[in-house]
Design a protein around this nucleic acid. Sequence first.
DNA 1: AATAAAACATACTAATATGTATGTTATTTA
DNA 2: TAAATAACATACATATTAGTATGTTTTATT
Lengths: 203, 203
Amino acid sequence: MRQDLKSKATKELIIQKSFEIFYEKGYNSTNIPDIMKETNLSKGAFYHHFKNKCDIGKIVINKIIKKRIYDGFISPLKDYENKNIPELILYVFTQRIKNYSEKEKQLGCPANNLINEIGCTQENDFRVLLSGLISDWNESLTKVIKEGVRKKELHSNINPKAISTLLIGSFEGIRGIRKVYDDDVIFQDYISSIKYYIKSIST
Amino acid sequence: MRQDLKSKATKELIIQKSFEIFYEKGYNSTNIPDIMKETNLSKGAFYHHFKNKCDIGKIVINKIIKKRIYDGFISPLKDYENKNIPELILYVFTQRIKNYSEKEKQLGCPANNLINEIGCTQENDFRVLLSGLISDWNESLTKVIKEGVRKKELHSNINPKAISTLLIGSFEGIRGIRKVYDDDVIFQDYISSIKYYIKSIST
DNA sequence: AATAAAACATACTAATATGTATGTTATTTA
DNA sequence: TAAATAACATACATATTAGTATGTTTTATT
């Protein structure tokens, strides 16, 4: 195999497996041997491609988690031109929850898990990356809410940024709390409230 | 010193210091030597009073964190007889945030930190204890919201349990997200939205 | 006062971790 | 095709940690 392709493939394998184990065990409880067992490669391979655990942590955030938030929450907001904004927002925040697998329900949101576990304890780099994820999401959602106001589908006296913050915060909070339950009651109540809430800010 | 008093005092010291270090470093990253350095006692003292780390973890939840939630969120709801319910709820969910110290802003909510870090990864005991904290809180708040409906201070067509879930979830979510920021914008937006939200469900 | 037991302290074992140093094999390049 | 280098594997040095075993001191009991 060509060396550059092989190197790239190995790197991506290690990054992907790292993400999965961080997601399942948390960042601090994951160790390099754990990761490399999953890749069927040796520790030498890891340290050939990455500096250390911190290094892979940041890369996982930038390559995997960032993309997940983009694909799941930002991208679906993009083509808001033709759609009813309140419906679009409701869809994004409830349809995903309805489609979560058992594993995703138990393990919560990868981004939120990292935010809560290492948001403030690890070096500052992590904090900046993680806040960047939320800020990107928040800005995209705020833009859509503003567009909803412009189109008179949302009340004009609302605070778009504040609403965006509440939507994102409540979503992440609920996904966290769901982790300690073994049923979907909390999700159902959340969806019920979000429906009501979005209705209340709609024209 | 009397032996039973001494024993009790030592236990309480270890529990309190454990809570503080769990809060600062997270559960998984805290080790017994870390804790005992803070108490100026030896490791032998720890294992004399507690079985292991898991044991102290559960005790910290039951003795410290449970009480914090009770004192901070449940107890203030108790004397709702004489108060306006929407105002009381708004007060509980915003006043606390305004009074948080820098440390509390950076470190987030002790309960939510544990929920997100070890909610599903550790043994089932933790999950049950942590969900119990949220359930107790949720039930107390739901009761108050129902009382608000009865007193016609809140709309009759709302879903009290769902509203309670959204309030708690958003609060915890926001406290988590705040950890990766170094300013209070996210709190201000949250407070703004919660004010608007509570107004929207009030008569 | 003598004995027992609780409250610790110290020393140690065993397991596990990170990161490095040094091999070996595959690929590239001159 | 030979030298160089990248892509790994293996072995190791070091550190850390949980938990135990066994001391010593303090308090309680008889």
